[in-house]
Amino acid sequence: MKPKVAFFDFASCEGCQLAILNCEDILLDILNLVNLVEFREALSEKAPRYDIAFVEGSIHRDEDIERLQNLRSRTTVLVALGACACNGNVQARSNFVAPAVNYEVIYGEEARNRVQVDADHWSLWSHTRVRPLDAVVKVDAYLRGCPVVPAEFLHLVKSVLHGTTPFFPPDAVCVECKKNGNECVLERGETCMGPITWGGCNSICVNNGYVCDGCRGTLPHANIDSHITLMREHNIKDEDIRNRYRLFLGAEPIGRGV
């Protein structure tokens, strides 16, 4: 029996699901091997139980928690799909700013003042803390990155088909960066999150002339103190270091020592 596969999303741009749909060359082969039962980006069929649920997005509200727990109870394998689900992603920056302040930045002071006294809008202010999936339920596998990497998605699907645990080496982005023969970002006088960030992305940002911003989350053995020292040596102000860490990792404890 082909495994039943479903995709769900919470707070996210759904870009990770699109990244998977973009693997046109292998997608049809994969669809021969699995039974895709729920995929909002592509079809709409419902099933009571799934073998693999890919869940995109971060968790913000109480109703998100209930929906995720319900999903968890209906799937054998739950995969966190992408940076929002794995580590909160950019929206976790709002954990450090009061919702009313955010609202003002986007819609202006007048609009903020107006909705603040309107009971219909009070649910807005309950949006308190952005969390990755594993802050709420058990996650069986992580497909990291913003967006996810098709090769890792494929590895995961094959592993599940073979009944084995997928393995993503806990190596820094530097490993792939060196394999690609890149000039180190530091050599260009810039700073990089690569040394403390989960690899697996084939160092795609550095390959293309940018730096690593750490979208894939910090490694279990990440030497954060050393990274702070490195940033300070490059004359990065502590406030900017904090901002750098919070870009993708606002929901992680990283940077609390800065």
Binding site: S159, H162, G163, T164, T165, P166, F167
Partner: peptide, 10 residues
């Protein structure tokens, strides 16, 4: 115990 031995057990 690991990835490969899981597969061997199958």
């Amino acid at each position: 115990i690991g990835r490969l031995t899981q597969a061997i057990h199958e």
